[in-house]
Simulated assay, not measured.
Amino acid sequence: MTMHRVLIWLPLLLLTGCSLFTGTDNTDPPSELVELEPELRIETLWDEDFEGGDGAQLKLPPAYQTGVIYLAEPSGEVYALDAKTGDELWSLDTESPLSGGPGLAEGLLAVGTMEAELIVLDSETGELRWRKRVGSEVLSVPAIGGGSVVCRTGDGGVAAFAADSGEPRWLYDRSVPVLSLRGDSSPMISDSLVVSGFAGGKLIGLTLDAGLVAWEASISTPKGRTELERVVDIDSDPKLVEGTAYVAAFQGEVAAVSESSGVVLWRREISSHAGLDASWRQLFVTDDQDHIWSLDATNGATLWQQKAMHARRLTAPAMVGDYLVVGDLDGYVHWLSQEDGHQMARIKVGSDEIRYQPLVIDDLVYVLDEGGTLTVLKAHPLNAENP
């Protein structure tokens, strides 16, 4: 008999999470936003409308490379935009429903589809280079590096292809739990290693040349009596910083792992599905109650915790200068102090939820909401002259 994996749609799981996990219906309503005395002036540089996601659990955040913003629409169109102006440089219809990407490097752009295909384009011209079948739908961002394109698939596989030709190089296949969140952690290429998180709370390092397991780290282990209580997934993307991989697990821990050996350097019992951002000094994570934590990157100690946006379905935090930015369910983008977490400014960019971690390029913040609007923001000190 074939065992089928059940993918849990995360928004439904979170909205009904308390009743599912405890047997009672005590879901918290989103916190009301209190009046804020702004410490920053937020400028909107430009915005452009694209196709929205209609609430589907896809992984199509905007990406940046060499002055160009790249965007993929669920129906199949891929765009390259001038990062300063938003002007279209090229577009291509892949004629396939896209679900993961774009990934960028080495002059290539890679996207994955709901129909189990990996598609690779020339990032400068949009010309199709190749497309290949993979094991199942792609719900993560493909990685490019070392002459390979690597993608995660929903059936637990990691596949590598030659970047120039699309010829298969290797396949790593891993069984997945019966219950799992809908979505996958995106693979990360660092030198000769591919690092990716998996359902079941495992972070694994694979050799880039052959797909062999270099190490396997247990970030979290399943707990509880029911299958739902035992869902422990690394669904968000790990962050690689100076030889350390920082990773967060849903219904599990946040941990720091040695990139070279897979040794867990420290872990904290903080559950997160949204994800994190990190530097060599600090780690910032949004937990499952939509509280934002600042942790010491060297030992995991708490530096501060911000609870004022409880249950507002926050994105992962993104660092920009001395600030953090997060988006929320009502289309607000919030600026916080990295030093102590206090709220410094906010702006409403639309009425649709912001689900993807804001993309930070230098001092600019690119935000894509569920309605498909891409907005570019810049923060100015209040005493600065208007541009």
Rank of each mutant, 00 (worst) to 15 (best):
L60M: 06
P38C: 05
Q57C: 03
D49V: 05
P61V: 09
Q57N: 03
G23A: 11
E37M: 07
V34W: 03
I42M: 10
P30I: 04
G17I: 06
P61A: 12
R41D: 04
G52C: 03
S19G: 06
L40H: 06
C18S: 12
E48V: 15
Q57S: 11
W46Y: 15
L40F: 09
C18L: 04
W46P: 00
G17K: 11
F50A: 02
P29A: 13
N26W: 08
F21A: 10
D28R: 14
D49E: 11
F50N: 01
W46K: 03
I42K: 03
L40N: 08
L40D: 06
L20P: 01
L40R: 12
V34Y: 04
L60D: 05
L33N: 09
D25F: 14
N26A: 12
D54T: 03
E35Q: 15
E32F: 06
K59E: 09
P61Y: 05
P61T: 05
L36P: 05
S19Q: 14
Q57W: 05
G55M: 02
T27G: 13
P29M: 07
N26G: 04
D47G: 01
D49I: 00
D49S: 11
T24M: 09
E48Q: 15
G17D: 08
E32M: 07
D47V: 01
L33M: 06
L45P: 00
L20Q: 12
S31P: 03
E48T: 09
L20D: 04
L45K: 04
E51C: 00
E48M: 03
P38A: 10
G55L: 02
L60V: 06
V34R: 15
E51V: 09
D49C: 02
L45Q: 04
G53W: 02
G17M: 14
T27F: 05
D25R: 12
L58W: 06
G17H: 10
L36E: 12
E48I: 02
D28A: 13
I42A: 12
G53V: 12
P29F: 06
A56K: 05
L45R: 13
P61M: 07
F21L: 15
L45T: 05
T24E: 10
L20G: 14
D54Y: 05
D54P: 01
E43Q: 14
D49R: 05
E48F: 00
T22Q: 08
D49G: 03
T44L: 14
R41C: 02
G53A: 02
D25S: 12
E39D: 07
N26S: 11
G17Q: 13
G23L: 07
W46T: 01
L36F: 10
E51I: 02
G17S: 11
C18T: 14
I42D: 10
E32D: 12
T44W: 00
T22G: 04
V34M: 13
L45F: 00
T22H: 09
T44K: 14
G52H: 03
D54C: 02
D28K: 13
G55K: 00
E32S: 11
L40V: 09
L58T: 06
V34L: 15
W46M: 02
E43G: 01
E35S: 14
V34S: 14
P38N: 08
P30M: 07
E51Q: 15
F21R: 15
S19W: 07
D49F: 01
L33T: 08
T27S: 15
F21S: 08
C18G: 05
